[in-house]
Design a protein around this nucleic acid. Sequence first.
DNA 1: TAATGGGGGTTTTTT
DNA 2: ACCCCCATTA
Length: 679
Amino acid sequence: MFAFRRDLNERQLEAATFGDGPLRVIAGPGTGKTTTLTARVEHLLDQGVTPERVLVLTFTRRSAREIINRVRSLRRAEQAHRVRGGTFHSVAHHTLRRFHAAVGLPDGFGVLDHGDAADLLDLVRSDLGIASGERRLPKKTTLAALYSRTVNTGTPLAQVMGEHTPWCADHSEQVGSIFAAFTDRKRSLGLLDFDDLLLFWRAAVQDDVLGDQLGASYDHVLVDEFQDVNLLQLDVLRGLRRLDHRLTIVGDDAQAIYGFRGASPRFLLEAERHFDGLSTITLDVNYRSSGAILAVANAVAADAPSGFSAVLREHVALAGASPPTLVHCGDERQQSELVADRVLELYEQGVMLHKQAVLYRAAHHSGDLELELSRRRIPFVKYGGLRFLEAAHVKDLLAAFRLADNPRDEMAWFRLLQMLPGVGPAKARRAIDALRDERLHLPLSFTDVATRWEDAVDVLPNDVHEVSDGLVASMRRRAGEPVMIHAERIRDALAPLVRACYDDAAPRLEDLGALVLACAGAARLSDVAADQVLEPPASTGDLAGPPMIDEDWLVLSTVHSAKGLEFDAVHVIHAADGNFPSDMALSSAEGLEEERRLFYVSITRARRSLSIYVPLRYHHHRVRDDHSWAQPSRFLSDGVRDTLDETAFVDPLAPFDRDVAASAIDGSQVVSGHLSKLW
DNA sequence: TAATGGGGGTTTTTT
DNA sequence: ACCCCCATTA
């Protein structure tokens, strides 16, 4: 009957074939969460549910695709790709594109990424005449983080600042006025940031008429990684399901690692308060890791003051597993060498590089290791950290794409105009002002821009008239023109500016070519720009050296970006207090507990081999030759260490120190002795 | 008004 | 080590 039935255990099957719900599945790491969700989708399709009326919300679009791709049997596979799926933000984006008029958004609204939002905050701050320096106001990135946390948790600003930025908490009124102006500014420019996508979606689902319609468009809603949902996202779900209880939420409180985005495992643990008649199924049989690795994970879990819901149980002994080890290193340099040694050793034993991952708390922790890997020619890709989309030239073209659909996007104008040689903030601003009508509004279309452009171009230096005319002309879409052709014209018009602005224009222009290709099949240029913001490429592979021909590569990843993944071998580096747990998180008890869950997540990625590295000494970069001693991570408690094989630290240089002291030679005599034979 | 150079402060995780 | 802001200079 069901193709999946024989592959599932009893609990998984119960979850997959559960009736209408609401249903909560608590699923520990490696307990077949994705398999179960996939089987449930398959089950729903078997029951005759229309694929388009199934919504699967996941943490990344990649995991949505994985679930859909894994739906087996050809007949259903064809249906499966009609299933709706994606992240909260991407589904919000699609919904708002479709219903923009109903929530008062302009057609072709733009989506700001994190950096753009911070820049706009900084802009309104200076427009309000609030100086950044004088009164220790938070920096723009801190402002953006504060804004996001306030909005996503629905907590009053003063309280958020009291908890997270106590050093400037008395400025909360000023910060509040910046946020109010920021909000107004985004509306008048036709721009949404990440949080706005959720805010407008929530407003839509909470509306009497529109909300009923949106809720009625889905028969079943399934949510993965529910422990990382925040209040705003919970509100959206409650709105979507207020008339219909067919909801499945899956999560694990032990893996809640997005507190800084306003998420809380509380929403998973107290879900019965939000969804009437909730049933719960717990999955705790782990199919991923060796018993020895599970023992480490459970020892970490045992140290958590309030415990985790699922205590993992081993399924069957995994072949080829090696004992988990704790490796003491002299310093970061030696850590890199030992990791590289171990990676190659495992590789010799047949563990492919892409089945191995090095995990760390913060993106910059991989720096020294990357040098070592490059030196030894071990290919690698990095997840998390640096992004394609943060490259200046990519942002330039995306700004042009946004602008083409929405000429009110002052941020985009400001950015593009400053690429012209001899044009800085002042001239850019005057040119933008010249485009405004009597009510100070920017034009709504490029047809209108064209009529005002003559005035604007007068402000600019004479020698940039031609290139800027070309750029503006390229933005105007010709009737019936395919989106990709339009994109190509814009890219061509921008190319001379890219050459003028950047030394290494050639690789940058290639990136822009790739972006143009990404426009194939898109309905609008602003969709392409938004997609890049909402779903940036996950990894940056070729930052170190020439592109690798190798088919195999080691994975380097932040723990956050490794969520949901598994590897045969995992190397956790920098397990020193201050790095892991990060000292940034230690000011509160919840902060520390979230770090503990992160540590738990990193360990439970491993299938057969787990190595944890602790550098003893950290060299300071400010003062040469200065260093400090590190404490091993507090998560390596006695109970946890009992589950690990420890390698005693041996200073590889120590024997040489003795030898050097014992032998004193006359170097110059020896050298000239050698050289004298040459002439 | 744009570009450049020096100095001071800071340091996480991502849709 | 790096980024951002500010002041100076062209």
